[in-house]
């Protein structure tokens, strides 16, 4: 009420000042031009090429051809495999990583075991790619350590052929999902106060009640958020699968690389773009949900 009466009078005075301020802040924005120029060339333009290319016929006109090409059974199968692979490894990683994070936090604070495990996890979470594939070939492949031990001790012959299939990827992906979970979930578990448990006990609550009514609801958003992050992480991973599976393209990232490198079929380069767009859409939805949950977690973590 008062504002509507107040504003008209001084309007002539602040307006030039505001315009001056706006001009100055626009001039200040010049300082950010190198940054925006850089990301435009190496991030925005490539993304735009993917998005626009997904809706273009070879001639250049708008068309649904590439999007419709996603409807084939191979592509749908690849998307299903990718989603299942990511969901399963995210769930396994979240459960074991969450357990490890909880165990680390409830131990003595600042203990040596916590520092070692955290350091190991931060290296292993980055340890994706080709090297991870070779680590598992050295473990479970035909001449791997575990395969040799099984043969020498138990007389069990294993070829390790399952390692080169999508179910085999589940085991391999778990290797970087668990450490990643520890790193992203640790801050949330750190936010749990010992007093809350004591308060529950003082009020007569059992361990079950504590988890059901206090710790569970508090950790749930952070846990779900981390789960989504793990999903996106597995969904985007390419190198490990590329090093292990060379004969077929059962998951979306391999389909994309197959479409890029396929030089026989000209239209395939455009299929890569619609496949890539499909991946972006899924990852974007997951990351959006993650951001929402993150906001909720931040509220009580402070």
């Amino acid at each position: 009420m008062t504002t509507t009466i107040d504003t008209p009078a001084p309007v002539s005075a602040p307006r030039p000042a505001r315009r001056g301020h706006g001009w100055r802040s626009a001039r200040s924005a010049i300082g950010t031009i190198p940054f925006f120029g850089y990301v435009a060339v190496f991030l925005i333009i490539p993304t735009a090429i993917v998005v626009i290319g997904a809706f273009r016929a070879p001639g250049g006109a708008f068309s649904w051809v590439n999007i419709k090409a996603l409807g084939t059974s191979t592509v749908i199968g690849a998307f299903v495999s990718s989603v299942v692979l990511s969901a399963v490894t995210a769930a396994i990683g979240a459960v074991f990583g969450g357990l490890l994070a909880y165990v680390l936090v409830t131990g003595r604070p600042g203990s040596i075991s916590r520092r070692i495990v955290t350091a190991v996890c931060s290296v292993l979470a980055q340890f994706g790619g080709v090297m991870l594939a070779f680590a598992f070939i050295a473990t479970l492949g035909q001449a791997g350590m575990i395969s040799n031990l099984l043969r020498d001790w138990l007389g069990v012959e294993t070829t390790g052929a399952y390692l080169y299939t999508v179910p085999g990827l589940i085991l391999v992906y778990t290797y970087f999902q668990i450490p990643l979970m520890v790193i992203v979930f640790l801050p949330a578990v750190d936010g749990i106060r010992a007093q809350w448990r004591e308060a529950t006990e003082t009020l007569g609550g059992s361990t079950w009640v504590y988890w059901r009514r206090v710790a569970g609801p508090l950790l749930a958003p952070a846990f779900l958020g981390s789960l989504l992050l793990l999903f996106a992480n597995a969904f985007s991973a390419y190198a490990t699968a590329a090093a292990l599976i060379t004969q077929s393209n059962p998951i979306v990232p391999l389909q994309i690389s197959g479409a890029i490198t396929n030089e026989v079929n000209v239209g395939h380069a455009d299929l890569a773009k619609s496949l890539a767009l499909g991946m972006v859409v899924i990852v974007a939805i997951v990351m959006w949900l993650y951001a929402l949950l993150q906001k909720r977690t931040a509220k009580w973590l402070g």
Binding site: F42, L43, I45, P46, T47, A48, I49, V50, G53, A232, F235, S236, Y238, P253, I256, S257, I260, A272, K273, A276, M279, V280, V283, A284, M287
Partner: peptide
């Protein structure tokens, strides 16, 4: 974070 390397490389 929402644009995986395998997607970026298509437009690169």
């Amino acid at each position: 974070l929402t644009i995986p390397a395998i997607v970026l490389v298509v437009g690169l």
